[in-house]
Amino acid sequence: MDETSSRAPDERHSPEPLVVAVKRTGGFAGLTRTWTAEARGDEASELVELVHRCPWDEPVDSDPRGADRFQWNIRARCGVDEDRAAELPDHAVKGPWKELIDAVREWSESERRPAQQR
């Protein structure tokens, strides 16, 4: 039996789930926080668009000034052969990067909320 024939059309195009993981390290507290979004089909479309809008391959200027800024590590798996990763200083988190990070945090926190009250 062809399993894909029973799935919704949009799922046929993305049989693998979209996984975006955000890790935040550093900051004054030096606490590591992680957020993950794992989505399929319709649920994934908005995140897929955000992933594609981010400038993954553009070099990021490191800013030697300052201290206690966050450091961000972002990984996305959009399919079997599509892995992306970026490491960003806090000052680079703007535009599409910020939108993607905020979306993943929101996704992750809405998943966590029923089990966790804080």
């Binding site: 004054f28 507290a29 206690d68 800024r69 966050f70």
Partner: peptide, 9 residues
């Protein structure tokens, strides 16, 4: 915002 930092200035 969960942080306090020094921005160089």
């Amino acid at each position: 915002y969960d942080n306090a930092f020094w921005d160089g200035r």
